[in-house]
Design a protein around this nucleic acid. Structure first.
Lengths: 110, 110
DNA sequence: CGCTTATATAACTATATAGTCATGAACACC
DNA sequence: GGTGTTCATGACTATATAGTTATATAAGCG
């Protein structure tokens, strides 16, 4: 987006990536993975989500490239693929923080 | 996301921000705004979208803070609020580029 | 080979929302 | 006031998907 305009197909791909992060449950899973690599059942414990639901979310996150996985026996271990997702969330949180600050300022005189 | 875990309410807010960018049409609108501030009808011409549809997307983008607006007579002028959205899309595009490169490499020997 | 455990997936329901059409609201101009 | 222009919004349909339940797949173990 910094230079030439993106084609329709490219916009679709970018939108799909954003969509994969547009769910509180998936953000929660990514956050849980910051504690370190985990199996699906480990994530069930960390998050409290149902196994089937969690598994589907993990497929989405994997397809979007946010997590990597390795099979070990009957288990699948998931981990964060890189730091990009943290950078993205930092930008969002920075914005939310500034919004909150300016709202606070707006209501400063009660 | 860089430090303390986010609360459920905070994750909801972050997810909503991502969701506002998870539509090819809205990305297209943001891209059109890179040419400069425009009225709704100007954006109808730039994008080819219907007026009602465009107006609704602009409400979403404004609520998420990606665009700012000013009323002038009967028109509303919209413009990009800041550079964050460009930074976000750059990160996404960088990922997509690297994915494409590694796929290309994978199929190098035909 | 059964039996258990761990994960993925199919079928289903409920909810959200993109796009369209019709209409409302606000302003400009005669 | 009447008319036209610009934008926002309500009602509607069609589609996507989150969550759940039940089942399939696959590995380890007796």
């Amino acid at each position: 987006m910094s230079d030439r305009p993106l084609s329709g197909a490219q916009l679709d791909l970018v939108a799909t990536r954003f969509k994969s992060l547009a769910e509180p449950s998936r953000l929660r899973i990514l956050q849980a993975l910051r504690q370190g690599e985990a199996t699906v059942s480990g994530l069930v414990e960390r998050t409290g989500f149902g196994q089937a639901n969690l598994s589907k979310h993990l497929q989405v996150l994997h397809a979007a490239g946010w997590v990597e996985r390795r099979k070990e026996g009957v288990s699948t271990w998931y981990r964060l693929a890189d730091e990009d997702v943290l950078r993205l969330c930092d930008i969002m949180c920075g914005r939310l923080g500034r919004e909150a600050a300016s709202r606070r300022k707006l209501f400063a005189g009660r």
